[in-house]
């Protein structure tokens, strides 16, 4: 198992996108691709080849779960953990997202200083299960 390097972040809000980018690049030292919509993420997938995808749940157009459903139809994403980011959720909603195939759910507001460690841990868990 190699280290987590390439992270794709799909989020419609530009400010959150920027905060997350700095957190992941500067604090986490990852290579980051920020996308403003599910479609943009799908389009950039082949070229960027992420190790992990951070996906906002509530987005205009294609929302998080819809984007995830699309991702899961693509063979190249089979081994890529997808992590949802959403506002405070009920345990039942977390269970529902995981049933849809999410590796984990990170609640907003998130702490950008700990976000890199959080997703590293998720990534390790995901691959530990293989």
């Amino acid at each position: 198992m190699s280290e987590l390097e390439r992270v794709m972040h799909i989020e419609d809000d530009p400010s959150i996108r920027e905060v997350a980018r700095i957190a992941l690049e500067v604090v986490g030292g990852f290579i980051v691709k920020s996308c403003s919509s599910g479609q943009e993420g799908l389009d950039a997938l082949k070229q960027f080849t992420p190790d992990l995808i951070l996906l906002d749940v509530m987005m205009p157009g294609m929302d998080g779960p819809q984007t995830l459903a699309h991702l899961r139809t693509l063979p190249e994403t089979d081994n890529i953990p997808v992590v949802f980011m959403t506002a405070k959720v009920q345990p039942s909603e977390v269970a529902e997202y995981q049933r849809l195939g999410a590796a984990m759910v990170i609640t907003k507001p998130f702490d950008p200083m700990t976000l890199p460690d959080q997703i590293r841990a998720i990534w390790r868990d995901w691959h530990g299960q293989d």
Binding site: I16, P109, D111
Partner: peptide, 16 residues
Amino acid sequence: RTPLTSISGAINLLLG
């Protein structure tokens, strides 16, 4: 919450 997420995030990044 959306703006709060980026406000808190930006502050935490600076403080961190």
